[in-house]
């Protein structure tokens, strides 16, 4: 179960190019701001269309320019935690968490487990605008986990957090990597984070 990615896309005068060879565990996409790391995540999620190449996750082809495969975003089952939480402002935390959980399928973890695991039980009745940055990010991670994702995309999940919160979220990511065993593709520009969390690192 892993990522197999080779994509290119022209942006203005430059080009975003990324190649990730299949490997287990948590892959960190590391590089300076503006290298196009978030664009790569968007291409894996289907929000941005590569000009060429392919995206395969766990053996399933999500995109292949040569073969004309381009799965729609909802069909890709990406558990995408964006850089900003993107919680739905008109829904309470509980409804945000349930948004992607449809019917029986709620993913590798039961809702109660996710709530417990992320420590967000006391937030369920709150509106997103009343949450702190760390709380909102944990809810966003929970919402992605409960949508029965086939893999996780984490975009700078530790940015704009104080030291205590960073430590908390890092522990959560380590648990996801080691216990849930979902393929995880994570973007960061912090060398320390990359070295601590990554099974392997791809430089951009």
């Amino acid at each position: 179960m892993s990522f197999d990615i080779a994509v290119t896309r022209r942006v203005g005068d430059g080009e975003i190019a990324c190649r990730i060879a299949p490997a287990d565990g948590l892959t960190v996409l590391f590089g300076p701001s503006g290298a196009g790391k978030t664009s790569v995540l968007n291409m894996v999620a289907g929000l941005l269309r590569p000009d060429a190449g392919h995206v395969r996750v766990g053996g399933e082809t999500l995109f292949d320019a040569a073969a004309g495969v381009d799965l729609a975003v909802p069909a890709r089952r990406a558990g995408y935690v964006f850089q900003e939480p993107r919680l739905f402002p008109h829904l309470r935390v509980s409804a945000n968490l349930a948004y992607g959980a449809r019917g029986e399928r709620t993913g590798p973890l039961a809702p109660e487990e996710v709530v417990e695991f992320l420590g967000i039980g006391h937030l369920l009745d709150r509106w997103p605008r009343t949450l702190s940055g760390g709380e909102a990010r944990r809810v966003a991670i929970g919402r992605a986990l409960l949508s029965d994702p086939a893999f996780l995309l984490l975009d700078e999940p530790l940015s704009f957090l104080d030291r205590a919160r960073r430590e908390e979220i890092m522990a959560v990511i380590e648990r996801l990597r080691d216990t849930v065993r979902l393929p995880i593709l994570m973007v960061t520009h912090d060398r320390g984070e990359a070295e601590r969390l990554a099974s392997h690192i791809v430089e951009m």
């Binding site: 289907g46 909802p74 990406a78 995408y80 964006f82 993107r86 739905f88 449809r102 949508s147």
Partner: peptide
Amino acid sequence: VDRRLEDAAATLGAT
């Protein structure tokens, strides 16, 4: 309406 929220909904499986 923030289009990024619509993208987020799509990644969560919404048609």
